[in-house]
Every structure is written in C-alpha cells, then in structure tokens.
Design a protein around this nucleic acid. Structure first.
Lengths: 343, 343
DNA sequence: TTGTGTTATGAGTACGTTAACATACCCTTT
DNA sequence: AAAGGGTATGTTAACGTACTCATAACACAA
C-alpha cells in the first residue's frame, strides 16, 4: 500500500527504517547507533551515521515515549505568565527541570476567566507530561472536591492544604510574621496593611499573618487597604493613609511594588521614611527596577520551591506518594525603610 | 507473555484496549466514543463511558502523536526565563499558542554558558514539538553557519537576518530612531547613550540606531556607556554623566530600568528632568514597579511578535516556507521626561 | 424477491521505537 | 576437530491510537 500523506506537509519524517534501508542494515542496528550502544562494528556505525546525516534523521519523540512510557516533561499550568509570582514559579521549576534533564510543558489558562482544577488537569493530562503542576493564584471553586487523576503526580502551588493532593508554596503567612516581629521589635504597634486584590490566595495569607500577629499582641487591626499589586495602587493607598491616619507608625505592603508606591506617596505627603513611618514589602523584587533599593522585605527561595514542586510532581522510583503540604519559609531582609518609631 | 512492568511505578496506564475489554466492545469502538464520533449506539456509548470512568482512562498522548504525526506543542528555547525580554517573549507566544490550542514546551538553556543554535535545535528536536523557536539574546557563535533541521519549522528571535532561517523580532534598531527623532524635534543634539551589556543583541541594535541617527545628522557620537540593564547600573552611568558631561542635554538609556536609575542619579546630582536633561528608555516596563511612571519610552507589541513567531514556527497547511526577516515596529510613548533643552 | 443504502461494529494495519531473543560468524582453548 | 565464548547483526513483539476496509443487521423501495 502506498504511504498516505503523513500530515499537512505531505511529507513524513525520516524514520530508523528509512535510515536502515539506505545503509543496508536492519532497523535495530540503526537504533543501536542512535543510542550509542556498543557492539556495533565501526564501519557499520559510520555507514549508518552517514545515512542519518544524509537523510536528516531525528528520532521520533512519539515512538520513543510510546515505547518507554515517559515524556521527560512536566506540565505547568498558570493563568498569567507575566505576574511576578508565576514568573518566579516558572523560573524555579525550569531550573529544577533542567537539573533532571526535563522540559516544561507550559499551558496558560485564560488570564481572565475563572478556572477549575478539574479543567486544568484534564487539559494537562492530554499533553506529554510525567507530572502536573498547577499554579493556583486564586481560589479554585472546586478545590475542596477536587480529586487528582490517578496515575500521574499532581502538585498544586498554593498555601491551602488539601487532603488528597500535595501542595507546595512559599510561606505567605509566615513572611508576615517575620516582618511583623521585626516591626514589633523596633517598637511599632500601629501597623497598617496594604494588600493585593482580595481574590488572591497569596494576599489572603499575607493579610491573615498581619492580622494574627497584631491580635496575638492584643492590638486591634485597623481596616486593611486593597491594592492591585501595582506601584500606583500602593501610591494611592499611601496617600490615603498619610492623610487619614496620624497614629500609624508603619505600613506593611503585601508586595514590594506597592511598598515602593507607598513610600513615594508618604514622601509626597511630607512624611519621611523611615523616620516618620516605616515601610516593609514582600518579594525582594525591586532590585532591577529601582536604583539603591532600600526596602526592608522578605525574600523567598524560589528555586528551592521549584525543586520541591518538581520533585513531588515527578516522584522518583520507590518514593512514597503520601500527600504533604510544604511551606517554604522566607528570609527577612532588613534594609533602610524601617526604624524605631518616633517616641 | 506477561506484561512487563511499564515504568518505575510498575503500573501501566489504562489503554483503550483495557476499556474495550471491560465494556465488551472492540478497541475501535472505544476510540469512537473517546473522540465523540457518530455511529455509536447510545447504549454502547454509555457502557463504554462508564468503563472509562471506572478505570480512569485517559488517552495516550504518545499513541495519538505517533498515529497522526502532530504534537500540538511548540518548542521554545530561552537562556534565562527571568530577563524581561524573554519573559515577554514567553507571554506573547503563550497567548498565540493558546489561540491555536497549543502548548509550549519550554527549555531553559544554561543561564551562563555560551550556547549554539545547533545544540539548541538538537535538544528541541528531541521533544514533542511541531516547531522550534529559539530566543537568541546574545550572538550564537554558529549563527552564520547554522542550518535549520529539515522537516520542522524553525524561527530564531533575533534582529539578525539569516539566509536559511526565518527571524522575527521587535525592531530594536527602529526604536532608537523613533526616540532620537523625538529628541531631535525637541532640539536636542548632545545625546548620550547608556547601553546594556555589549554581548546582548538587543543592545547592539539599539546602540547602532542611536549612532546612525546621530551620524545622519552629522553629530559625532560621544562614547556610549555600558550598563547591565539594572537600575543600579543606570544610576552609576547617570552619576558619571552628570559629573563629566556638561554639554549633554539628553540621555538615551537602552531600557527603562536603566533610564529610571539614570533619572535618580541626575536628580541626586542636582539636575532636573526634563528641564535640564531629557531622558528616554525602551520597553515601557516600569508601570508595575514605579508609581506615576513619567518616562518617555517605546512600547513593543509583544503579543503581535508572539503571534508572528508562532505562526512562522508552525506554518499552516499550504503556506509558503520562504525564509523571511520580520521586524515589528515599536510605538513611541511620550510622557514627561523629555522637553526642549535649555537654550 | 432482490437490490440499495444506512447504521453499528469489528478486524487489520501502520505510525517509530526499543527490549528480548535468535542467529551467524570468528577466535580461543582443549 | 570439537566445544565454548564473545561479537555483530537480524527478527519479533509490544507500546496506544485512529484510519481503512469488511461485515452484519436492518430498513425500504422497485
């Protein structure tokens, strides 16, 4: 039977059988040469390699995967590549993947629409992946009821724990405690909070940490403000606080960008940082964008998080598959936007 | 013969044959149900779907790809995910890929080592990809001699044209002309340049545009400064210029981050922006990080670039495969860091 | 009754790879 | 000369899917 046209191009990739025919050997011998196995006569090897070169052979990923049941790629689902949190996730996972000689199959879900874990895993499972990683930057409506697909490692990057799925995240709650303890030690008590959008999971935990830290010291938390992670929203919030709250001595902004905006607003309002008001952020993300970055903040080891995520998504042979919840602590970076309050 | 253990887990994914056995139908009927084809009896369909559910069937990507010769994924090779240029490339390509219901297979080459196009394509070609995209942020030593693999669409993201490979990029030369014309129209002539690292391709073209624009007006370009794209390096350069060059009236920084640093340096040196010195950047990347971003800059349509890249890497049926070099123009964004020079 | 068309289903095959097994040959050793 | 052992190579089977073709059952019209 004549070969049917293979795909749109009408051509068919060169297979080992083609090379074998050209070199006058069996297809298995081509396989041996391709994989660098011993027990091939040197002349034969050269003849085969010449034929490969000549025909432009490249091994079929599909054939190989079908054969040995592995894809050497891990699926990563995020809803918006450009958000700092997601970017840093990609970076961390990419370096972990590289260490394992593994690629990342990236799927961006709609930036705007709500997405469900079931939908995300369904899409990822149809791709060449040995494991599934889902970035859950906002609460998925089916988080509680979600069951991972059997037979494929699944990790959700989120602070929420799940009874049947391993979850990994930077400790977005603990980072607040680190910062609040730092401010408490300096003597601050009236600490306002500028948060991100309320649907954000990171925001929810950073805010909870702020609130719990205050309540543990029996300080009544004053109404948190809501930004959108951008410097401009931090500026607006900072303006508002400078004009309406004369008792606050410190501001905790839920990321560095808003903290940077808040600092600008305070200074525009005639307040000095840190002499009049201390400001802290989270992420340690300003260095590239701001000269002489002086912001006290928390840095997360995103590569470590990437490694943890990767290794739970693609478990090694013989590893236990117990569901765990991993929280990776951040590190307090004290710079020069925090000081003791005026007495 | 007993089935051999399939992979490390010792289990084997559920195949259509397994479902067929459970449902008492042929494997082909399962295929029909899985793909929603007509001509299946309603009762049979339900029995098969029940069996799929029961066993946890998910179609094998490898089997399907082997069968129809497509992967529905495009390979993307970058050397450092976190750089602004690469991030925005991923974002643009991700949205183009999503429109085509396609995933991205991301490979990060070593951040530090030199990389060759041959090596990059070799690695990408071993992955499940219908096309190859290589981000060449620095000159590859084998660029001139490089031949794309036959049988798979290849696009290099770079400003350099290549006789045998389609290249696509934002117009890093033209953006300089846009900015320089803007400054010329305001009356500037002594325009200094703060560039990125000299190995960067983007840098080379942005600098060339600056230099050519000056020379076209018979103005001798004064020694460009070299930064590393960071705000701090822009600050250093700005400090240097403020102290050593009393005749300059404008600074062109090769990205916004350095421009932002330079502005801070000028102001710290007692110079006003834009009254004493105008400053321009490129990328329009500050908004999230800086409140009240006032920088005059050039914005690139990175989604358009992503689409162009994608569509040339994965050509549609019947498309001509002529090699082209596509340069996507940027758009001048005039804000408030540029004004007429003092007279 | 015979022919024609439709619908549901199954059988066979090809896609490219690699493991396991089989074979053929040459070189030692007894 | 026969036996044994290594080396090079070929043969077969299996991985999971979807296309093509075949078959069987049935409906309807001439």
């Amino acid at each position: 039977m004549a070969r049917r046209p293979f795909n749109d191009t009408g051509t068919r990739p060169v297979s080992m059988a083609d090379v074998a025919r050209a070199a006058g050997v069996s297809q298995q011998t081509v396989s041996r040469v391709a994989n660098g196995l011993p027990n091939v006569n040197e002349q034969t090897r050269q003849r085969v390699q010449a034929a490969m070169q000549e025909l432009g052979f490249r091994p079929s990923y599909a054939g190989r995967s079908l054969r040995d049941g592995r894809y050497h790629s891990v699926g990563l689902c995020v809803n918006d590549v450009t958000k700092f949190g997601n970017l840093s996730m990609i970076d961390g996972i990419a370096s972990a993947a590289r260490e394992h000689n593994c690629a990342i199959t990236l799927v961006e879900m709609s930036k705007t629409e709500e997405f469900s874990l079931a939908e995300a895993t369904r899409r990822m499972a149809a791709l060449p992946v040995d494991g599934i990683i889902i970035g859950m930057s906002r609460m998925a409506p089916d988080f509680e009821t979600f069951d991972p697909l059997p037979g494929i490692g699944t990790v959700i990057v989120t602070m929420y724990a799940h009874p049947r799925v391993t979850t990994v995240d930077s400790d977005h709650y603990g980072c607040s405690l680190l910062l609040m303890d730092h401010l408490f030690e300096l003597g601050h008590e009236q600490i306002r909070f500028i948060g991100g959008p309320s649907f954000s999971v990171d925001e929810q935990f950073r805010r909870a940490g702020w609130q719990d830290a205050l309540e543990r010291k029996h300080i009544e938390p004053v109404e948190p403000l809501e930004g959108d992670w951008s410097a401009n929203s931090g500026y607006e919030a900072g303006r508002y606080l400078a004009e309406h709250d004369r008792t606050m001595t410190a501001i905790y902004a839920a990321n560095d960008q808003m903290a940077n905006g808040a600092i600008a607003a305070l200074r525009d309002s005639g307040l000095r940082v840190p002499e009049d008001v201390s400001v802290v952020g989270v992420d340690d993300s300003l260095d590239d964008f701001v000269a002489h970055n002086e912001l006290t903040t928390v840095r997360f080891d995103l590569h470590q998080r990437g490694r943890e995520v990767f290794e739970h998504a693609v478990p090694k042979a013989g590893a236990t598959d117990k569901t765990v919840a991993i929280r990776i602590p951040g590190q307090l970076i004290v710079r020069h936007t925090t000081a003791a309050p005026r007495t």
